[in-house]
């Protein structure tokens, strides 16, 4: 492994771990979704660094394909999480309003 490749890979791994810890510890929904996305970005950086094969050579296409698939999955998952979160907020707000009416 070259030095630059190693640096990118190590940075990616570090970002992955930071994101994961924040994703497990953060309280707010949006914070957790962002943290999980950051963690995913770190992993993608690691994969891209692994694909490097030298200056004059084409990069390994398989890790790139993995990263592309991973990005699509991450977008879909974030969308679903936000949609459920919005539904949850609506439910909570309406139940608060109902309590407010009855009291």
């Amino acid at each position: 492994m070259e030095q630059a490749q190693l640096m990118f890979a190590a940075t990616g791994a570090l970002i992955f771990v930071f994101g994961l810890v924040a994703g497990l510890r953060d309280d707010s929904l949006l914070g957790r979704i962002i943290a999980i996305n950051i963690s995913g970005v770190g992993l993608f950086l690691l994969l891209v660094a692994l694909a490097y094969r030298g200056l004059c050579q084409a990069a390994d296409p398989i890790p790139h394909a993995l990263v592309l698939t991973g990005i699509v999955v991450a977008v879909a998952a974030s969308g679903l999480a936000i949609a459920i979160g919005r539904k949850l907020d609506e439910l909570r707000n309406s139940s608060h309003r109902r309590e407010g009416d009855s009291s």
Binding site: F16, L20, G23, L24, L29, R32, I33, I36, S39, G40, L43, L46, L47, L50, P63, L66, G70, V73, A77, L80, A81, I84, G85, K87, L88, L91
Partner: peptide, 24 residues
């Protein structure tokens, strides 16, 4: 129910990320 589904989703995502790191 929605809270449980949300927690399930997020933990599932974290599990998949760990799995993907292993794959890498």
């Amino acid at each position: 129910a929605l809270e449980a589904a949300l927690r399930y989703l997020l933990l599932g995502l974290i599990g998949s990320l760990l799995y993907l790191a292993g794959v890498a």
